[in-house]
């Protein structure tokens, strides 16, 4: 079933490189900045951006928190060494801790969101400092599941990998020959020690990819996906996640008052005049 997610890496890579080059440069900006965690998604973006804009125009910002895994940072350095892109380590510990200290009790989820949003602030500030657009590093699996922080790691100007399932991220990562340790380690948002995406989600990325692909790309019904051999509860759980997280994939709702309301009947692309 995973075969259905196979992509032609050579052509898709060329396409994504062209996408980054054009959608960045047509704004008049030559550079790009992104959060480089050392995970597979942001690492892949580093390779695409380097090809698109040239290594001298790409900035990977590593933003560890004091409890972030050391291996992640090491992997990020491997990517920097391999691609030759610019990098900067910007610790978020004092900023995040200062905020967190205002509260006596704060849940792990809130803390995770604070880390993600502190990183977002850092990236968009560097965007201004460097004159660089922020590249997104969320993949299609995360975006559909809503497994990300709204206005945190989901925030960006241009996202080359948002229409690629996790499995397809792996295919492209092999194609670009990412460092082996980046490809083989367990996926983790690294928001707290020992966090594992798949443990937290309660299902594997492989299962999620196949289910999501059939539900949304191929428009299978829940029953039809169940016939492929998946537990109906799991399919329902995933479908519900997608529905409940639609808001995260949208700009904020605007109350329509006038005859021409932004994004409702005032309709232009971002690329208006570009």
């Amino acid at each position: 079933m995973m075969n259905k997610l196979k992509i032609n890496c050579e052509i898709v890579a060329e396409y994504l490189i062209q996408f980054v080059q054009e959608e960045v440069q047509k704004t008049g900006i030559k550079k790009a900045v992104f959060g480089l965690s050392g995970g597979i998604d942001s690492s892949l973006v580093a390779y695409i951006a380097k090809e698109a804009l040239g290594k001298e125009n790409v900035y990977g910002i590593m933003m560890p928190y004091k409890k972030s895994s050391k291996e992640s940072l090491e992997d990020a350095y491997k990517v920097v060494d391999d691609t030759g892109i610019n990098h900067k380590v910007f610790e978020i510990t004092d900023i995040a801790d200062s905020y967190i200290s205002k509260f006596d009790k704060i849940s792990k989820l809130r803390q995770g969101n604070i880390f993600a949003r502190t990183r977002m602030v850092t990236l968009f500030d560097h965007s201004s400092e460097l004159g660089a657009l922020v590249l997104g590093t969320s993949n299609k699996t995360e975006l559909l599941l809503g497994y990300g922080t709204w206005y945190g790691d989901m925030a960006s100007s241009v996202n080359p990998i948002g229409d690629l399932y996790k499995n397809q991220i792996y295919q492209l990562s092999r194609y670009f020959s990412l460092p082996e340790s980046v490809i083989t380690k367990k996926p983790s948002a690294d928001l707290w020690v020992g966090q594992s995406d798949e443990d937290e989600l309660g299902f594997s990325y492989d299962d999620a990819d196949v289910i999501l692909f059939h539900l949304y790309d191929l428009r299978y019904s829940i029953e039809e996906v169940a016939e492929l051999g998946f537990d109906k509860n799991l399919i329902n759980l995933i479908a519900e996640r997608v529905r409940k997280n639609q808001f995260k994939r949208m700009p904020p709702l605007i109350a329509k008052v006038s005859k021409r309301t932004i994004n409702i009947d005032f309709r232009y692309l971002r690329d208006w005049g570009l």
Binding site: Y15, Q18, E23, L269, D271
Partner: peptide, 8 residues
């Protein structure tokens, strides 16, 4: 050729 809002 070219892109418009991500559509290539």
């Amino acid at each position: 050729a070219g892109f418009e809002d991500g559509v290539g």
